[in-house]
Design a protein around this nucleic acid. Structure first.
Length: 942
RNA sequence: GGGUGCUUAGCUCAGCGGUAGAGCGUCGCCCUUACAAGGCGGUGGUCGUAGGUUCGAUCCCUACAGCACCCA
């Protein structure tokens, strides 16, 4: 083995071997265990969130595979409608073209071409993380099989009356020219104004004042509403107002939606451009008046002079005209919530358009069939409420159920070209024909089409196909094998449905609504099964200061840069490349030069993965600190060197297991600790506490195996007892190999590399660590006696070390050692560990001082009643040692007083559990023993 | 407005009813042939505030303060 751990060399060789060996595919043996990869966008590149989430999935998959499960990690990518279409549209823009110049077919063809060339970036990056996924079954949401599932689902829901087409008010993105769902709209607080406008009654005798943040929409007003119990306006209800700037008259209506106490208590009603107003308009049978075109310019329903103006220009014009007429009563600054499209940042305009919806809210249809609430929403709610699906951490179930309780119908049509085209056709009379293809649509129609059929131009919301992921990837709805475009079988529902439900979904809270809930809905409806048993909501990765990572802040980290390292200049270049605003660019560059003056060091995949594991508590954010990752790289190096030590102490060839139990206490102790650690780690896998899991393994490897067992093994290996040496050699090796297996799910590369050297020594014949079983705690025998003895030894050694350190005795200097007092056990143990004490404490052979004999002035450590003495002569400052003893005595006196306080409290003794009282009595006895020995020592020093 | 979290050592976080812990940082000593990406030893906290429950509260309850996120 090389002298130090070099991740780059190791990682490059193992992944390809694993993948080629077929080790990532389901074994076909054991219980099914499946994890679905949340399919990343084909447009994406791997970011820290992906790397974290995928590390979690990979740990689970590798662990379960080693435990003998029939493991499938189902991967693939998402076509990401808008994002992908935009990339290609941007490319066209460089050529001064739009998608309309190409036409639909040619444009879609070009998007496919882009996908073939660039769409696998992220899946290749996933391999660098070490993801043990079954790439042979990789899917794409727009491949033929998954598209067939989409058509089937659409048609079935439509025929069940659960998908409908309607002219509804939807969130319209005027920049992208498509509807978007409620979820794709963010409400952003912006500084704006509240304008008060006076509307005169038709007879001109009276007026009302309405307040609005969007004065331009008055051109589409159809009423002014007041509260039914508002006495100020009761007499006006039913009268008409003259709508300024237009020649229309609008009624005053009463509706208890209006808040009497807000503003003047009068509200202008614009049903075509406001969701609340739309509902009021419907209640009062007031037909909406659309005043904007699809690109948010004033249309022909408005007076001539405003037509063609952009909505914000129209606002200025309307305000100026109202001002001129003396109808603008007040203008004041106002903070308002503006709906913004997540995809384009454009301000959303509610627009009345024809769209397709999934019914999620009606109880019963007109014909008596169950509505969407009964058929789709409630089963999804029940799956979580009943505990069939469990969230981890569980409080996310509240988020899930509250959203479903208040859900709206899902607008699934998008006015895009890239995506699953809606399987609906229209005849020349506007009748709708739905089917998996045109022939199917005709066959299922009640009436013959009038003239030719034309397919709906729209495509489905990307999340529609994602919702089917748990079963469409397993081959549904086909009956037999499903092939990919290369003719390879990627799924077969007949066999693969054993993987439904999957074991756990690992995903971010931000897509509980977009994806998790919809998967439950669709999977329950179409397969009758839940899609997964658990939903592990992973934390959001932030920077070391807890700030959200964003390109414009310059605090993003590329996981591959952490793995490979990157010099400062290339890092600055890549971080600022996409930033167009010079000030932002300068700020980001400055930050990077400050944060990473030497660039980013290469820490390797294993250390990155271990860091993710160590940070993965139930907390909802994790702050990624490179320093922490560097610490775990040191851990990898520690493991590496421990293995080197073990291997360099072995003779050539295979190491036979000695007959019988391990000879030394140290061996039996480390095996006991290994057993405990493995038991803990198994628990932490069950509870998804990867932080505790990582910590348990870290502590075992570093603080137990390396710090103590390796050290204890040195005198054993070099001592006269051949049996102890042989036994120790074997135990060193066995524990190391178990540790490698236990750590493999977390740090697969280094463990595989080390194992390759270790396995032949144990005569193991598996070709890869992946094929070894995960080590079982219950296969190891615990030995509490040995544990107690090693703890005693550790106390003795620590005592000597503390004296050395505090008395400034050079660590290399061999010093005399005396033992005084103590009991028979101490004598036995001192004899047993004599070689270890002498070697590790660097002392001469310990000598007992007989009771009552003269003692040299000495510094002392106390272990029970045993005093471990280091004679002062020439080594130790008497005054310093007295001070040290006094300090220790004072500390113990405080502890004793605490115990006495408790035990002196009658109600404590009466009410506390007996074992707690007993524990307290034991504690005080132990402290008193130590205190007695310390006082004795103090007296001896005079 | 409704909801969900968080507040513990300088920093980042575990612990969640019975002696306050880890990593990183910091200080001291040491290049002791597995590892200086290291070894050994130390320093450092009235567990956000105020009440309550309890023999006992960092942990449970209530209120308050601050911070964050989600939904409207």
């Amino acid at each position: 083995m090389e002298k130090s751990f070099e991740p780059a060399q190791i990682e490059s060789k193992w992944y390809a071997r694993w993948e080629a060996s077929g080790a990532f595919r389901p074994s076909g043996r054991g219980e099914p265990y499946c994890i679905l990869l949340p399919p990343p966008n084909v447009t994406g590149t791997l970011h820290m969130g992906h790397a974290f989430q995928q590390t979690v999935m990979d740990m689970l998959v590798r662990y379960q595979r080693m435990r003998g499960m029939n493991t499938l990690w189902q991967v693939g990518t998402d076509h990401a409608g808008i994002a992908t279409q935009k990339i290609v549209e941007n490319q066209l823009a460089v050529e001064d073209k739009t998608r309309h110049d190409l036409g639909r077919d040619a444009f879609v063809e070009r998007v496919w071409q882009w996908k073939e060339e660039s769409g696998s970036t992220i899946t290749h990056q996933m391999r660098r993380i070490g993801a043990a996924a079954d790439w042979s079954r990789e899917r794409f949401t727009m491949d033929e099989g998954l598209s067939a599932a989409v058509r089937k689902v659409f048609v079935e829901w439509y025929r069940a009356g659960l998908i409908y087409r309607g002219n509804r008010l939807v969130n319209w993105d005027p920049l992208l020219g498509t509807a978007v769902s409620d979820l794709e709209v963010n409400n952003v607080e912006r500084d704006g104004h509240m304008w008060s406008i006076r509307y005169l009654t038709t007879d001109g005798a009276e007026s009302v004042v309405v307040a609005t943040t969007r004065p331009e929409t008055m051109l589409g007003d159809v009423a002014v509403a007041v509260h039914p119990e508002d006495e100020r306006y009761a007499h006006l209800v039913g009268k008409t107002l003259k709508l300024p700037l237009t020649d229309r008259e609008i009624p005053v209506i009463a509706d208890d939606y209006v808040d009497k106490d807000f503003g003047t208590g009068c509200v202008k009603i614009t049903p075509a451009h406001d969701f609340n107003d739309y509902a009021i308009g419907q209640r009062h049978q007031l037909p909406p008046i659309t005043i904007f075109t699809l690109d948010a310019k004033v249309n022909d329903n408005a007076p001539q002079k405003y037509r063609g103006l952009d909505r914000y220009d129209a606002r200025k014009a309307v305000l100026a005209d109202l001002e001129a007429l003396g109808l603008l009563v007040e203008t004041k600054a106002h903070k308002l919530q503006v709906p913004v499209s997540q995809r384009s940042d454009a301000v959303i305009e509610p627009m009345l358009t024809d769209q397709w919806f999934v019914d999620l809210t009606s109880d019963t249809q007109k014909d008596g069939r169950p509505g969407g609430r009964k058929a789709i929403t409630e089963p999804a709610l029940d799956a979580v409420r009943s505990g069939e699906i469990k969230f981890v951490p569980e409080n996310w179930a509240t988020t899930y159920t509250q959203w479903l309780d208040n859900i709206q119908d899902w607008c699934i049509s998008r006015q895009l070209w890239w995506g699953h085209r809606i399987p609906a056709w229209y005849d020349e009379a506007g009748n709708i024909f739905v089917g998996e293809d045109e022939a199917d649509a005709r066959a299922h129609a009640g009436t013959a089409p009038v003239g030719a059929l034309r397919q709906d131009d729209d495509v489905l919301d990307t999340w529609f196909s994602s919702a089917l992921w748990p079963f469409s990837t397993l081959g549904w709805p086909a009956d037999g094998p499903v092939k990919n475009e290369r003719g390879e079988i990627v799924a077969n529902w007949q066999h693969d449905q054993i993987f439904l439900p999957s074991a756990v979904l690992v995903t971010g809270f931000d897509i509980i609504f977009f994806w998790v809930a919809r998967m439950v809905m669709a999977t329950k409806y179409f397969t009758g099964r839940i899609p997964f048993r658990k939903v592990y909501i992973n934390a959001i990765v932030r920077d070391a200061e807890g700030q959200k990572m964003s390109k414009s802040k310059g605090n993003t980290l590329d996981p591959l840069d952490l793995i490979d390292g990157i010099a400062l200049e290339p890092l600055v270049e890549k971080s600022t490349r996409s930033l167009l605003i010079p000030q932002v660019r300068a700020k980001v560059e400055k930050r990077i030069r400050k944060d990473y003056p030497d660039g980013i060091p290469a820490i390797g995949t294993d250390a990155l993965r271990f860091t993710f594991a160590a940070l993965a508590s139930y907390s909802r954010t994790i702050n990624f600190d490179i320093k922490r990752a560097e610490g775990y790289k040191a851990f990898c190096n520690k493991l590496w060197n421990a293995a080197r030590f073990v291997l360099m102490n072995l003779p050539e060839g295979e190491i036979a297991a000695p007959a019988g139990a391990p000879v030394t206490e140290a061996e039996r102790w480390i095996l006991t600790r290994l057993k405990q650690t493995l038991g803990e780690v198994e628990q932490h896998f069950v509870s998804y506490r990867f932080d505790l899991l990582a910590q348990a393994l870290y502590e075992f490897v570093w603080n137990e195996y390396c710090d103590w067992f390796l050290e204890l093994s040195k005198p054993a290996l070099n001592g006269d007892d051949a049996a102890a040496a042989a036994s120790t050699r074997h135990t060193l090796l066995v524990v190391l190999e178990s540790v490698l297996r236990a750590l493999h799910p977390v740090i697969p590369f280094i463990t595989e590399e080390v194992w390759a050297s270790v396995a032949p020594k144990l005569g193991l014949t598996e070709g890869s660590l992946m094929q070894r079983p995960w080590p079982r705690a219950d296969a190891i025998v615990a030995d509490d006696t040995a544990t107690a003895e090693v703890e005693w030894f550790k106390n003795v050694l620590s005592g000597v070390r503390r004296i050395r350190s505090e008395m400034n005795i050079s660590p290399g200097k061999t010093i005399p050692l005396r033992l005084a007092d103590g009991d028979a056990g101490d004598r036995e143990r001192a004899a047993k560990f004599a070689a270890q004490i002498a070697f590790l404490a660097r002392t001469e052979a310990p000598q007992w001082i007989a009771a009552g004999a003269d003692e040299p002035a000495a510094a002392a450590a106390v272990v029970g009643t045993l005093r471990v003495l280091i004679p002062l002569a020439g080594l130790i400052d008497l005054g310093a040692e007295k001070a040290r003893l006094a300090k220790e005595i004072a500390r113990i006196e405080v502890e004793i007083r605490k115990c006495e306080g408790k035990l002196g409290n009658a109600s404590f003794v009466a009410n506390a559990p007996a074992e707690v009282v007993a524990q307290e009595r034991q504690r005080i006895a132990d402290w008193n023993t130590t205190l007695g020995a310390l006082r004795e020592q103090s007296r001896k020093l005079g």
